[in-house]
Computed example of a mutant assay.
Amino acid sequence: MKAIAEQPPQVAQAIGIKLEDVKAANVRLQEIIVSGEHAAGVHIKHGEFSGDIEIRKIKVEANSEKK
């Protein structure tokens, strides 16, 4: 929360699923809905997967209107 508070409001990003430093056999993600100016449905960083990755039904509504 502190890191978010220190960022300017325009930098905030809505992320549906964020995985970091994950080691897994299989991953299944589905029905993810996220909206915002810099929205991202799925963010994976430093992932190691030995099996299948299934990502389905992602809905991202990136709203770029200034308020």
Rank of each mutant, 00 (worst) to 15 (best):
residue 48 E to G: 06
residue 9 P to K: 13
residue 51 G to N: 10
residue 65 E to I: 07
residue 61 E to D: 15
residue 42 V to Q: 02
residue 10 Q to G: 01
residue 10 Q to V: 10
residue 2 K to E: 11
residue 24 A to K: 04
residue 66 K to S: 10
residue 17 I to K: 05
residue 21 D to W: 02
residue 13 Q to E: 14
residue 6 E to K: 12
residue 49 F to R: 07
residue 56 R to E: 10
residue 6 E to F: 03
residue 47 G to Q: 04
residue 2 K to V: 12
residue 64 S to W: 02
residue 13 Q to D: 01
residue 65 E to P: 00
residue 13 Q to I: 03
residue 25 A to Y: 06
residue 29 L to R: 01
residue 51 G to Y: 11
residue 15 I to E: 14
residue 18 K to W: 06
residue 57 K to L: 08
residue 9 P to R: 09
residue 46 H to P: 00
residue 43 H to P: 00
residue 45 K to I: 07
residue 39 A to P: 02
residue 64 S to T: 08
residue 18 K to D: 10
residue 25 A to H: 10
residue 55 I to D: 03
residue 38 H to I: 02
residue 4 I to M: 13
residue 63 N to A: 09
residue 36 G to C: 08
residue 38 H to S: 07
residue 24 A to R: 04
residue 27 V to C: 01
residue 34 V to Q: 05
residue 42 V to R: 03
residue 11 V to H: 12
residue 65 E to L: 14
residue 67 K to C: 03
residue 57 K to D: 13
residue 30 Q to D: 13
residue 35 S to W: 13
residue 12 A to T: 12
residue 56 R to D: 06
residue 28 R to P: 00
residue 57 K to T: 15
residue 57 K to A: 09
residue 39 A to D: 07
residue 50 S to N: 12
residue 19 L to E: 10
residue 56 R to H: 07
residue 53 I to P: 05
residue 12 A to C: 06
residue 57 K to H: 13
residue 4 I to D: 11
residue 54 E to K: 11
residue 54 E to M: 09
residue 40 A to Q: 13
residue 32 I to W: 01
residue 1 M to D: 15
residue 39 A to T: 09
residue 58 I to V: 15
residue 54 E to G: 05
residue 52 D to F: 03
residue 21 D to M: 01
residue 63 N to Q: 11
residue 57 K to E: 11
residue 12 A to Q: 14
residue 26 N to D: 15
residue 34 V to S: 03
residue 64 S to C: 05
residue 5 A to G: 06
residue 2 K to N: 11
residue 31 E to L: 06
residue 4 I to G: 08
residue 61 E to W: 12
residue 6 E to L: 12
residue 67 K to F: 14
residue 61 E to R: 15
residue 11 V to D: 10
residue 23 K to P: 00
residue 34 V to P: 00
residue 2 K to A: 12
residue 9 P to L: 09
residue 15 I to K: 15
residue 37 E to V: 07
residue 54 E to I: 06
residue 61 E to S: 14
residue 64 S to V: 07
residue 22 V to A: 04
residue 1 M to K: 10
residue 57 K to S: 14
residue 44 I to F: 15
residue 17 I to D: 00
residue 35 S to Y: 14
residue 7 Q to N: 10
residue 57 K to W: 02
residue 23 K to D: 01
residue 6 E to W: 02
residue 41 G to S: 09
residue 49 F to N: 10
residue 26 N to S: 12
residue 43 H to I: 00
residue 23 K to V: 03
residue 12 A to V: 14
residue 5 A to C: 06
residue 67 K to Y: 10
residue 4 I to L: 12
residue 26 N to K: 08
residue 65 E to H: 09
residue 57 K to V: 14
residue 49 F to W: 13
residue 11 V to N: 12
residue 49 F to S: 04
residue 31 E to D: 09
residue 43 H to V: 14
residue 50 S to A: 14
residue 2 K to W: 11
residue 34 V to D: 00
residue 56 R to K: 14
residue 63 N to Y: 04
residue 62 A to T: 07
residue 24 A to G: 05
residue 22 V to G: 01
residue 19 L to A: 08
residue 60 V to C: 00
residue 5 A to W: 03
residue 32 I to Y: 01
residue 43 H to T: 03
residue 16 G to H: 04
residue 24 A to N: 08
residue 44 I to T: 13
residue 51 G to L: 11
residue 9 P to N: 10
residue 43 H to R: 07
residue 27 V to W: 04
residue 31 E to Q: 13
residue 27 V to N: 07
residue 35 S to H: 15
residue 39 A to M: 07
residue 29 L to I: 15
residue 52 D to G: 07
